[in-house]
Design a protein around this nucleic acid. Structure first.
Length: 974
RNA sequence: GCAGGGGUGGCAGAGCAUGGUCAAAUGCGCAGGGUUUAGGACCCUGUCCCUUAGGGGUUCGGGGGUUCAAAUCCCUCUCCCUGCACCA
């Protein structure tokens, strides 16, 4: 029984020893190759949980592996406070928000600490930063803490660094100014990101075209701005819809008189238009009148419809009954009502219309302007009938019909001759041109709307605002993209499948707003009202790690770091004298900073979750390409999937956001690490499952007790020893490759299961253990598991009487020549025999055999197999006839044609296999004879081995010997 | 809609690039046996269906194709997951 291992005290012990020995502090070492690995700095508004720990453990496993491969590994860790959430949390705490309080308390925060948080964001950030640091230390992450820092003004030198970055980008023309539509809360007076929304996550701004219908009104021209996503249908407009009951107003919009729904006034004025509200407008003066279609110049009636929403766009809708299901149904409803009545006037939607107008309404007919396969002249009609829509109140069905019709018309639809110069074109191909054309002729304008309702956390309804003078990173720049593309080709990407996603992201990236007006962060150096936005200030900070040790140790301040200093350190653009022109930094430190950067840069690999692939990781490449010499661009990126817990996505509501510390307390670090890191591979999600911990624990206990109570024996070296060496060398080779490719699930299989199995099999089979080999094997295994379970490895390493650290030992090297395919094939023959025997025993219902007799195949069978294989290699397939022909030439075989025929027929499968795999060289009879005692032990009965061709008749009464084939001896049991 | 990934045995998860010892690694679960004072752990065996001698049958989301041979290649259908930005 293994002594119960106290993982936790072992872990604390080694963490202290590592720290005392400064194992993970990385300094320039001349002649030793460096390896720089990073894990994205976490945002400090909480403690690490399972999700974070996955990428982080992966980075650490790799760091440790590389260290054991002899690299001078730099693994630093900083923290991130830029942005809104910390401010938001403070605000919510001050308001006494229950959710916020709970979310902090779940991580073990005390009431006193919560009070402290209310003082401001710095208290929050610093607290969580320390908590992260503690948890990572408890996790045994091999970080050089001397280089730690936190973003924003809390680290003025870092802000200086960001200022340098942005000034440099601007000089190079990568920062441009422009306008940008955002979802906006009028109450908070700020953009409303996904996380700030009560309703409407994932909704985004979309641009409607406004078509300016017009009519005379009090000696002026009144514009009816019909908003649409389908401007091409202007050619099929039959009327205008207004809501009969909601208030409309008159407003001056860029000098014109417009009719607008009340909410549209604010929207348009937030979207860069000059809007002046004049006053309410009584719609009864409009209904039944006509206005002019700006494109076709046709007169169209103005009619009431209750499906029109004053909340959406302008509140003015153009009716295209041939192609818009809503319009079709609304018009149909009106006409039905009119047809049923005989009175002189009639109220429609609460508006009284005289007979003359009613007659005009009856004369309105849908117009067909887009022809689509699968639909008749009026697709809207077809769709409405197909879905059996009876009234304009059936919104869900109508929405479905609308999107269906639109999808087909957009991609396949062809505009008809009604559409003037666009006739014959598809909608998708001419839409842009058409809009530009109408806008150019002042017939059209635009309004932004949100794809669906968005309500801010403050419960205010949001709309789209166009931000003016927004600063952008010019990711659309073709040359910039090209640089990143060509660099990507030279990078290592783990897993390789992720490369295509980077390629696509680089192409897809557009200009990105890089500054915000609120939140924590570094001010844009040339425009103080803006703060550099979160994702934009975290793109090249890895370079700052090369400076931060010196900054921290020498208490350097922002004043020391001018742009000239950074230019010198990072780019060697100027002489030290020029660099220090406006700085009080000492020349000696300047030189040290420069050397540190030159030595450690570039980043060799960055390990991160796939959620950052399309933003941070790609920005990281762009910014490096823009700012640094190409030899300092990132060398590798490792991406991993998300973490699920017991098969379920993590979420606050499910309460399965397990804090990392809980796991550490429960299972200890090593088991948490290995169970996490082996839970997934590649881009797949990693599932944290408690039940998979036990097998790892057992294996560790097995190693522990084997080392604690080593088996006694001698120094004999034979087949069993060779086999063990073969298997372990295979493990060493495979694990090294797996580690190197960030495939830690595979690596863990190899170093835990396979190597321990090999060791166990050896202990079981060998009659006298080779003590020296045993020790060497254990040393190999301990070092193989060291990156995954570093603390236990350290303990075991010391139990093996090593004075140095396993963490700094070298990864065991493998010897290809010791990998003995032949031995392992032989082993397979033996286990196959054993399992065949077991099978027979079961079928024959023999419980305990008294005797097992094995008959090895006669040489002619092997010869024929070889013949068939050779033939198959020539022709590519198993050729029964030609093998038989060869056999018939043989005088001996001619005597027993039926047996030969039967045998050849059984060869098909084996031949197909050996066509591409080497045929074992081994001599079966010799092998079985040699291993007789092993087989006897396995089968626990006496075993006899006979060559089939020499077996005396009384030893083979049932004629079993004839069944023998190469590597599959015939078996007789009694 | 655009882009990327995926559907394998009771479960998790390999294998599919280079088609063939693939009824499919490994782990978990389950069953039987051994060991043990007992439990745990450990070791052996089995775990799609049929079969009293190692045999046969049907499987890798559905359908079709290529091939002597397909979980693996091609086509098609279907279902699922993820991202789509100013947000960390």
């Amino acid at each position: 029984m293994p002594d119960s291992i106290d993982f936790k005290s072992i872990e604390r012990k080694w963490q202290e020893k590592w720290s005392e020995a400064r194992c993970f502090q990385s300094n320039i070492q001349k002649g030793k190759q460096k390896f720089f690995i990073t894990f994205p700095y976490p945002y400090v508004n909480g403690a690490p949980h399972v999700g974070h720990s996955y990428s982080c453990f992966r980075a650490d496993v790799y760091a440790r592996f590389k260290r054991m491969q002899g690299f001078n590994v730099l693994f630093p860790q900083g923290f991130h406070a830029t942005g809104e959430p910390i401010l938001g949390a403070v605000e919510r705490l001050r308001k006494g928000d229950e959710k916020q309080i709970k979310s902090f308390k779940d991580y073990g925060v005390t009431d006193a600490q919560l009070e402290e948080f209310k003082k401001g964001p710095e208290q929050v950030a610093r607290y969580w930063m320390q908590r992260w640091r503690d948890d990572l230390t408890l996790s045994g992450i091999s970080i050089d803490w001397r280089r730690s820092f936190i973003t924003t003004d809390l680290t003025p030198t870092y802000s200086r660094f960001i200022a340098w970055q942005y000034r440099s980008l601007k000089k190079k023309g990568y920062i441009v100014q422009g306008t940008h539509p955002v979802v906006y809360c009028p109450h908070d007076d700020s953009p409303t990101g996904d996380h700030d929304r009560l309703v409407g996550e994932g909704e985004s701004p979309i641009e409607y075209t406004i078509l300016k219908f017009s009519m005379p009104f009090e000696n002026e021209s009144l514009i009816l701005p019909a908003a649409t996503l389908r401007p091409e249908t202007i050619y099929g407009v039959t009327n205008i819809w207004l809501h009969p009951k909601t208030p409309y107003v008159r407003a001056k919009v860029d000098g014109e008189l417009w009719l607008l729904s009340e909410p549209a006034v604010r929207k348009l004025s937030d979207q860069g238009k000059k809007v002046k509200r004049i006053g309410p407008l009584d719609l009864s003066t409009l209904f039944g009148k006509t206005c002019i279609n700006p494109v076709t110049n046709e007169d169209v009636l103005i009619l009431p419809a209750s499906f029109v929403s004053s909340e959406n766009a302008t509140g003015v809708v153009m009716s295209v009954p041939g192609h818009a299901p809503f319009d079709y149904v609304a018009l149909r409803d009106l006409k039905r009502k009119i047809e049923k009545s005989t009175t002189n006037s009639l109220a429609l939607e609460g508006i009284e219309f005289p007979r003359t107008i009613l007659k005009q309404i009856l004369e309105i007919h849908p117009l067909g302007l887009i022809s689509v396969k699968g639909y008749g002249e009026f697709p809207a009609k077809d769709a409405v009938e197909k879905l059996k829509i009876y009234s304009q109140d059936e919104r869900i069905k109508l929405d479905k019909a609308t999107s269906e019709v639109y999808k087909h018309e957009f991609h396949q639809g062809q505009l008809s001759k009604r559409c003037g110069k666009y006739a014959g074109l598809t909608v998708s191909s001419c839409k842009e041109e058409l809009v530009a054309d109408f806008k150019g002729r002042q017939l059209a304008s635009n309004i932004w709307e949100i794809t669906d309702e968005v309500i801010c956390r403050c419960t205010t309804k949001c709309h789209v605002k166009i931000l003016e003078n927004q600063w952008f990173l010019k990711f659309s720049d073709a040359d910039w993209k090209q640089q990143v593309h060509s660099h990507l080709k030279h990078m290592r990407i783990f897993p390789e499948d992720a490369r295509i996603q980077f390629t696509n992201t680089i192409d897809w990236l557009q200009n990105k707003a890089c500054a915000r007006k609120s939140g924590l962060g570094t001010k844009l150096p040339w425009d103080n009202q803006w703060i550099v936005e979160t994702l934009s200030d975290s793109t090249i900070y890895m370079a700052y790690y090369t400076l931060s040790r010196i900054v921290n140790e020498h208490h350097l301040t922002a004043e020391h770091f001018t742009d000239e200093v950074f230019d010198h350190i990072f780019l060697a653009k100027n002489t030290p004298q020029e660099a220090l022109k406006n700085s009080t930094l000492s020349p000696k430190l300047l030189e040290e900073l420069r050397k540190e950067f030159e030595y450690f840069y570039p980043v060799d690999v960055r390990s991160s979750g796939k959620d950052l692939l399309q933003n941070h990781l790609t920005f990281f490449l762009f910014h490096h390409a823009a700012l640094f010499d190409s030899r300092h661009w990132p060398q590798g990126i490792a991406v991993n999937g998300y973490v699920t817990v017991e098969g379920e996505k993590m979420s606050k509501s499910k309460g399965n956001f397990i804090p990392l510390r809980n796991l550490l307390n429960e299972y200890g670090t090593d088991l948490t690490r290995i169970n996490m890191v082996a839970a997934g591979e590649g881009l797949d999600d990693a599932d944290w499952k408690t039940e998979t911990i036990a097998p790892f624990r057992r294996l560790l206990e097995f190693l522990y007790s084997t080392i604690q109570h080593p088996p006694t024996g001698g120094d004999g070296y034979g087949r069993e020893e060779e086999l063990l060496e073969s298997r372990l060398n295979r493990c060493k080779r495979d694990s090294m490759e797996a580690y190197d490719r960030f495939e830690f699930r595979t690596a863990s299989q190899c170093v835990f299961f396979e190597s321990c199995h090999a060791l166990r099999a050896y202990l079981r089979l060998s009659s006298k253990v080779n003590v020296g080999l045993m020790r060497r094997s254990l040393e190999d295994i301990v070092r193989m598991i060291a990156p995954l379970t570093p603390h236990m490895a350290e303990e075991l390493w010391s139990m093996l009487q090593h004075e140095d650290f396993a963490a700094c030992a070298s990864y065991p090297s493998f010897n290809n020549e010791k990998i003995r395919e032949d031995l392992e094939q032989e082993e397979k023959v033996l286990t196959d025999v054993a399992s065949d025997v077991a099978r027979i025993l079961k079928l024959a219902k023999v419980k305990k055999p008294r005797l097992v007799r094995l008959f090895t195949a006669p040489p002619w069978k092997r010869r024929l197999l070889q013949t068939a294989i050779n033939r198959a290699k020539e022709t590519g397939y198993f050729d029964y006839a030609s093998v038989l022909a060869v056999a018939l030439k043989d005088e001996e075989l001619k005597q027993r044609v039926p047996e030969v025929q039967a045998y050849i027929k059984t060869l098909a499968k084996a031949v197909n296999y050996y066509k591409t795999n080497p045929l074992p060289e081994l001599d079966e009879s010799q092998l079985l004879a040699q291993q007789k005692d092993v087989l006897e032990r396995l089968l626990s009965c006496p075993v006899e081995v006979w060559a089939a061709e020499n077996v005396p008749a009384d030893k083979d009464k049932d004629g079993k010997a004839r069944r023998a084939s190469p590597f599959k001896p015939a078996i007789y049991v009694e």
